[in-house]
């Protein structure tokens, strides 16, 4: 009896490096990562408000650095992170009231979050670049 137990060497789980990625786990960790990214982004909101209120002479410097290549990449990243965390957060709230737990619904809502994120990011950047006079 004892030798039988020793012979069974089942793999322990999860081995994250070899475990096949699934939409459920990828979207879950992305929610955390986007949350952390947005936390960093709140620092920029603080900086933006503090410069506008207490150092208005430096406002143009902040504005032009946000319009540099690096600044625009950061803003694009935060736009994606915001819409992702927003939409996936709604998904979490539905789970919290016990809805949407079946696999087909969960996969569908997951893909909806991805499509929503990309679509809203595109819409937001389109409006930002076309609304008259705001980028001057």
């Amino acid at each position: 009896m004892q030798s039988d137990i020793k012979a069974v060497l089942r793999p322990t789980s999860p081995h994250l490096s070899i475990y096949r990625r699934q939409i459920s786990s990828v979207l879950s960790i992305t929610h955390r990562l986007t949350g952390l990214a947005l936390f960093v982004g709140t620092g920029l909101i603080v900086l933006w408000l503090v410069v506008a209120a207490y150092a208005p002479a430096h406002y143009t410097t902040l504005h032009s650095s946000l319009h540099s290549g690096f600044g625009q990449i950061c803003m694009l990243g935060w736009t994606l992170a915001f819409y992702y965390h927003f939409a996936n957060g709604i998904r979490h709230l539905f789970w919290d009231i016990g809805k949407g737990f079946t696999l087909p619904v969960m996969h569908r809502s997951g893909w909806t979050v991805i499509v929503f994120t990309l679509l809203m990011t595109a819409v937001t950047w389109f409006i930002a670049y076309t609304s008259t006079g705001t980028l001057s």
Binding site: H63, S64, F86, G89, I90, H92, T124, S131, T134, S136
Partner: peptide, 22 residues
């Protein structure tokens, strides 16, 4: 989280329409 849904949507909308000015 629930409170942030309308508040953050309002902020992003306002930001891209009113506050991108230099």
């Amino acid at each position: 989280a629930v409170a942030l849904l309308p508040l953050s949507a309002w902020f992003v909308t306002s930001f891209i329409t009113a506050m991108l000015s230099s």
